[in-house]
Nucleic acid binder design. Structure first.
Lengths: 199, 199
DNA sequence: TATAAAACCGACCGATCATTCGGTTGGGCT
DNA sequence: AGCCCAACCGAATGATCGGTCGGTTTTATA
C-alpha cells in the first residue's frame, strides 16, 4: 500500500475512534511509519487530510447504495424498505470507522464554515434519505405502505435505524439483538391499515 | 452568581457546543472573567471540571423525570408512553446544552477509562430506558400496547426519539415538523393489534 | 546511464495548551 | 483590631501541537 493510502487509512481510524483534535500528527506518524514531513507532502494540512477522508467516505457510501439500488428487486415497496434497512445495517457493520466518523460532531461543526465539508455531508444524508423515501413512495404507490408524508416517514425510519447503529458504537448496550424488533417496528410504522388521523 | 457556578455554566455551553478538547481554559477564563488560577482553585483539573458538569446533567435529568413520574396520570399505558415522549422532547428543548453534551462522543470515550464518568452516563441512560420500559409494560398489562419485549421496544422508541432530537442539533434538517409524525409512528409501533410473528 | 520529478525524511519553529505558584483581597469570626 | 481561610489573581512553565524546510532517496522516463 502506498504511504498516502496508509496515512488515509490510519487517519480514518484515529479520527473516527479518538476524534480530530484528539489525534495528533505525531500519532499518525507513529502509526504509519511516515515522517512528519511526508504527511504534509501529501496533504497540505490537517483539515485537508480530513476532507480527503470525508470525500472517500462519501464516494464509498454513495457507490454502495447505487450498487444496491441496481441489484435490488423486491415484490413491493414494503419489502424494498426492509431491504434498504438491512443493507444499511450490514454496511454500517462493514464500514464501522466511516460510519462512526459521520456520527461525530466535528464534521458538522466544520461544515458550518467549510462549504466543501458541508457538501460532502449533505450529499451522504440526501443519498440515504432519498433511497428511504423512494422505497416508501413505491410502497405507497403499490399499496403495501401507508404513509402521510413519505419524506417525513423516511426521516423517522432513518432516525430509528441510525439510532440503533449508534447504540452499538457507544458501549452501553448490545444492539445486535434489536435487529429483529427493529424490522418489525418499521413494518408497523409502514403498514397501519387505517390512518384515522384524529383531530 | 458565584464564580464557580459561572465557570460551570460557561464550560457546559462551551464543551457541548465546541467540544472538550476544542475548549481551552483561556476560553473559559475569557468568557467568565475568572483568572486562570481561579478555575484550578475550584476544580483540580479540566477532567474534574468535566465530571462536575456531567454530575449536574445527571442530577438534573434524573430529578426532572422523577418529578414527571410523580405528576403524570394517564388513562392507559399507551398514553403514558406518549406523555413520556413529549416530556422528553420538551426537556431536550429546554436543556439543549446538557442534551448536546450527552450526544457527543467524548463522554463515552472517557467512560471507557473513568468509572465515575461511566456511572453518570449509565445512570442517565438507565433512567431514560426504565421510564420508557415502565410505560410500555403498563400498556401491555392494560391491553393498550402490544410489545413482545418491553425492554427492546423501549430501546427502539428511545433510539427514534433521540435520533429526531439529534436532527435538530445537526443543522441539516429542521426536525420540529417531525413531531406529529413521530408520535403517530410510535403509536403504530405499539398498537399493532395482531402480532403475526412469522417464522 | 542521465535527469527530473515525486516521495520521503527528521530536525526545527512559533504558538498554544493545561497546570503551577507566590501573592493579594475580602468577608466572617473572636 | 487582629486573624484566618477561601476566593481570586496573573505571570511563568514545560510539554505538545500543527506546520516548515533543506536535503536525501526512490521512481519513472528517455
Amino acid at each position: 500500500m502506498s504511504k498516502r493510502n496508509a496515512i488515509l487509512a490510519a487517519a480514518t481510524r484515529l479520527f473516527s475512534r479518538n476524534g480530530f483534535k484528539e489525534t495528533s500528527m505525531s500519532d499518525l506518524s507513529r502509526m504509519t511509519g511516515a515522517a512528519g514531513g511526508t504527511i504534509f507532502h501529501h496533504f497540505k494540512n490537517k483539515e485537508d487530510l480530513f476532507l480527503n477522508i470525508l470525500k472517500d467516505v462519501q464516494e464509498t457510501i454513495l457507490s454502495a447504495f447505487a450498487r444496491h439500488k441496481e441489484t435490488m428487486a423486491y415484490g413491493n415497496g414494503l419489502e424494498m424498505v426492509e431491504g434498504v434497512i438491512s443493507f444499511y445495517l450490514q454496511l454500517a457493520g462493514e464500514m464501522e470507522d466511516q460510519f462512526l466518523l459521520l456520527h461525530r460532531h466535528y464534521p458538522y461543526q466544520m461544515a458550518e464554515t467549510n462549504d466543501l465539508c458541508r457538501s460532502y455531508l449533505e450529499s451522504v444524508h440526501n443519498c440515504l434519505l432519498d433511497i428511504f423515501e423512494e422505497a416508501v413512495s413505491a410502497g405507497v404507490k403499490d399499496g403495501s405502505v401507508t404513509a402521510a408524508s413519505p419524506r417525513n416517514t423516511a426521516m423517522l425510519l432513518f432516525a430509528m435505524v441510525d439510532g440503533v447503529t449508534r447504540f452499538n458504537t457507544y458501549n452501553l448496550y448490545h444492539a445486535a439483538s434489536l435487529y429483529q424488533d427493529l424490522i418489525r417496528s418499521c413494518r408497523n410504522i409502514l403498514t397501519r391499515e387505517t390512518s384515522p388521523d384524529p383531530m
